[in-house]
């Protein structure tokens, strides 16, 4: 394993897939007119050692892709990572990742590489996606890479938009947790607090939200991301 301290400046990325990823075009202009049905969304979630994206580490990444209302289970992403330190015992009950699972996993560089391949130029989606993007970006930079360049979509913001609360100045944050939204949109939560389970649930939520936006004439990626 190469020493990541020397790679920090991004001069010599330790993830071979980075090059191909960097070469992709993320032109917003080009994507603007694309119909939502023809768009590939990658809905992802990370389980981490904590909530500090600067210091904490990724324990697992789960992702599914959504194209035209469909999730193909033969093409999903699920990786558990080997980290230098074991998860804090108190976080085990929440995400259920035991030290053994982590030992059986892949290295961070390996995982991130595979993830870049999986994501490509798709739209990245998550619930509170900002955190997942931030911790992933820190990890990428640790291996000498840059930040993710994909356009992204937060299902929480999307739900606020669907329910018209954006225009009012306040709302109860508790009503927009993944659990609360699942309840409201009649999704049966299962495998909560596993990266894959949450990603899958978020993907279903995305589909329901997209349908509601479609009823309000949101048909293209531009209309979806632009506002």
């Amino acid at each position: 394993m190469s020493n990541w301290f020397t790679n920090r400046n991004g001069k010599n990325p330790a993830i071979p897939q980075w090059k191909a990823y960097e070469a992709l075009s993320f032109s917003r202009k080009r994507q603007k007119k694309r119909p939502i049905e023809a768009t590939r969304f990658v809905v992802f979630d990370t389980e981490t050692t904590g909530l500090n994206y600067q210091q904490d580490r990724i324990l697992s990444i789960g992702a599914v892709s959504v194209i035209n209302g469909q999730i193909d289970l033969s093409n999903t992403f699920e990786k558990f990572l080997i980290q230098d330190f074991a998860p804090a015992p108190e976080s085990i009950p929440i995400h259920g990742i035991l030290p053994q699972t982590i030992l059986a996993g892949s290295s961070e560089a390996e995982t991130l590489g595979a993830f870049l391949d999986y994501v490509g130029d798709s739209i990245l989606v998550g619930h509170h996606v900002g955190f997942d993007l931030a911790i992933t970006n820190v990890a990428l930079q640790r291996h000498g890479c840059g930040k993710l360049r994909n356009q992204n979509l937060d299902t929480k913001m999307l739900a606020l938009r669907v329910e018209h609360v954006l225009k009012t100045s306040f709302y109860r944050p508790d009503d927009y947790t993944l659990d609360a939204l699942c309840m409201r949109f009649k999704l049966t939560p299962s495998d909560r607090h596993t990266a894959s389970g949450d990603a899958y649930l978020t993907a279903l939520l995305l589909l329901k939200l997209l349908y509601r936006l479609k009823l309000r004439e949101v048909h293209t990626l531009g209309a979806l991301l632009g506002s």
Partner: peptide
């Protein structure tokens, strides 16, 4: 190999 499909 299942495809999960959302139908409106």
């Amino acid at each position: 190999r299942v495809i999960v499909r959302y139908v409106q």
